[in-house]
Computed example of a mutant assay.
Amino acid sequence: MSLRNSVSLLGYTGKEVEIVNFENGGLKATVSLATHDHYTNAKGEKIEETQWHSLVAFGKTAEIFQKYVIKGKEIAINGKLTYRSYEDKDGVKRYITEIRVEELVLLGGK
Rank of each mutant, 00 (worst) to 15 (best):
T50F: 01
A62H: 04
A76E: 08
E98I: 01
K28L: 15
G44S: 09
A42D: 14
G14K: 09
V31P: 03
G25Q: 12
A76D: 05
R84H: 09
V69A: 13
E63V: 07
G44P: 07
K60V: 00
F65H: 08
N24P: 02
Y86R: 11
R84Y: 03
F22G: 09
Y39M: 02
T30G: 01
T97W: 13
S8M: 14
L104G: 04
T30F: 05
K71P: 01
V69M: 06
E48S: 15
L107G: 07
E87Q: 12
G79L: 09
S32C: 10
G109N: 08
T82G: 15
I47C: 12
R84P: 03
R94T: 00
T61P: 12
K43G: 02
Y86S: 07
L10S: 14
M1R: 00
M1Y: 04
E102T: 06
T30H: 02
E87A: 00
N41I: 00
G25T: 11
R94F: 00
Y83I: 05
L106C: 04
V7T: 08
L106K: 01
G91I: 05
N21Q: 12
H36Y: 08
Q51S: 14
N24E: 09
T97Q: 10
N21P: 05
I47A: 11
T40F: 14
G108L: 12
G14T: 14
A29L: 10
G14L: 11
G72C: 04
I19E: 06
R94P: 00
Q66V: 04
E23Q: 12
Y83D: 08
K46E: 09
V7E: 08
A57V: 15
L107E: 11
H38I: 08
E48H: 11
S54W: 05
I70E: 08
V101N: 01
L10W: 08
G25N: 13
M1C: 01
A42I: 13
V17W: 00
S85E: 15
Y12D: 02
K67N: 15
L33G: 10
T35M: 07
T40V: 11
L106F: 03
T13G: 02
A62L: 10
I64W: 13
V92S: 15
R94Q: 07
